[in-house]
Design a binder for these strands. Structure first.
Length: 397
DNA sequence: TGCTCCCGCCAACGC
DNA sequence: GCGTTGGCGGGAGCA
């Protein structure tokens, strides 16, 4: 019902193939907001699974260019023989061969077509008999997240709803859907997206980010995270962990989302706004009563790396190192908004005084450090244009 | 060698 | 039963 009243913009596959055009369609002003751009893209989707299935196993293993080079009937070279054997034994190599075969004609077809990360790598692989696998950086969650974010405007117009189909995004970015879940869960924790249906999310961008950060900051204070930051493990009576936070969707899992929120919260309540993963993991493990298990610690750290990668892509944190007694430790520093907690606003009211309608303007802002609400009473005007006497303001206040 | 984190198994969930 | 979702940890890349 909600969406029926809105101008729904579905980000379909055709949009995803040309993100720039897609964004232009949604909001011209936001065109330049997303910094990450790929040099070139192709459309692996054109050679979809169907076309792969149409090939039989023998066709899949053939490398056309080599066959063309070879005189008809020539025996295979020893290297080619070896490659074929390895290909037959390794599904990964076989798949790469298949992609190479399938995508070559399309890459040559047009320069405007999109390239995913794997194809970029293929283009740079040259003519090595054993082409290199994409590096870890090229396959990193952070890079994938940047590509994901580049598809959508940071501040979409509130009148428009941008739908996200996980399937289409996964296909377009050339990754398994499992990886998209990792990204989406972190984005969801900051309300950059929200789930509307199976496989369907809505993109909000950073419209609500400051509000979300303010909420998390308040939650962090409530849960005494600021005390744990100073003395992990000795924070006195611990606030009930998320006792007031209903499990989203009634599921006990979604821990990545919860962890992400807690991780961000730690930054928000931290004086230095710098946190080592070690400390974050310890605080988070302590909450879940898993202190005894070293494997739980390792798992938490793994997940924190995942979350950190996504947050880094969002430019909310950056990796740094902190010096400690036993050398330096990797850490992350908050680089996101810092003025989110300064709640401010203006208020205006009319009242009748001595038969005249007068106006009072009040500006207010909250200083969390001082825990004070500051009020500024500015001299207003009567409806007739006469200045409001400053002597009356204290009485009015 | 330790940090980093990709990868995919598999179980819970929900339709 | 089957597709979706996501916890989890092995193990490999990388500095």
């Amino acid at each position: 019902c909600l969406f029926s009243q809105m101008d729904v913009t579905c980000v379909a596959l055709r949009h995803l193939m040309s993100p720039r055009r897609s964004r232009m369609d949604t909001d011209d002003e936001e065109e330049e907001e997303n910094v990450y751009m790929e040099a070139k893209r192709t459309t692996p989707q054109k050679c979809d699974q169907t076309s792969k299935k149409d090939l039989n196993a023998d066709q899949v293993h053939i490398t056309p260019s080599k066959l063309q080079d070879r005189a008809c009937g020539d025996p295979l070279t020893p290297t080619a023989n070896l490659k074929m054997l390895i290909s037959a034994a390794s599904p990964d190599i076989r798949d790469r061969e298949m992609r190479k075969v399938l995508f070559r004609p399309i890459e040559n077809e047009s320069d405007d077509l999109a390239v995913d990360e794997h194809d970029e790598v293929l283009q740079h692989e040259g003519t090595d008999e054993f082409e290199k696998k994409p590096s870890r950086k090229q396959k990193s969650l952070g890079l994938l997240c940047k590509k994901f974010l580049a598809l959508y405007p940071n501040y979409p117009a509130s009148s428009k709803t941008i739908s996200i189909s996980l399937d289409e995004v996964a296909t377009n970015l050339g990754v398994e859907r499992r990886r998209i879940y990792d990204i989406v869960n972190v984005l969801e924790s900051l309300k950059l997206v929200s789930r509307v249906a199976k496989n369907q999310y809505v993109w909000h961008g950073q419209r609500q980010l400051r509000h979300t950060l303010r909420e998390l900051h308040g939650l962090g204070r409530k849960l005494r995270y600021h005390l744990q930051m100073e003395q992990p493990g000795e924070c006195g009576p611990r606030a009930p962990s998320h006792a007031d936070e209903p499990a989203p969707d009634g599921r006990k899992d979604k821990s990545l989302r919860i962890m992400s929120q807690k991780f961000v919260t730690l930054f928000l309540v931290s004086k230095t706004q710098t946190i080592t993963l070690d400390l974050a993991a310890k605080i988070l493990i302590e909450e879940s009563q898993d202190m005894a298990s070293h494997s739980k610690y390792k798992t938490k750290v793994r997940r924190l790396y995942d979350i950190a990668n996504v947050l880094t892509s969002l430019n909310l944190i950056k990796k740094v190192h902190v010096r400690e007694e036993r050398g330096r430790k990797p850490a992350f520093k908050w680089t996101g908004p810092v003025d989110f907690h300064s709640t401010s606003g203006k208020w205006c009211s009319w009242f009748k005084r001595n038969g005249q309608i007068e106006m009072l303007r009040v500006s207010f802002f909250y200083s969390p450090g001082l825990n004070k609400l500051n009020l500024l009473l500015s001299s207003g005007h009567t409806a007739g244009g006469l200045p409001l006497s400053s002597s009356t303001l204290p009485a009015i206040a």
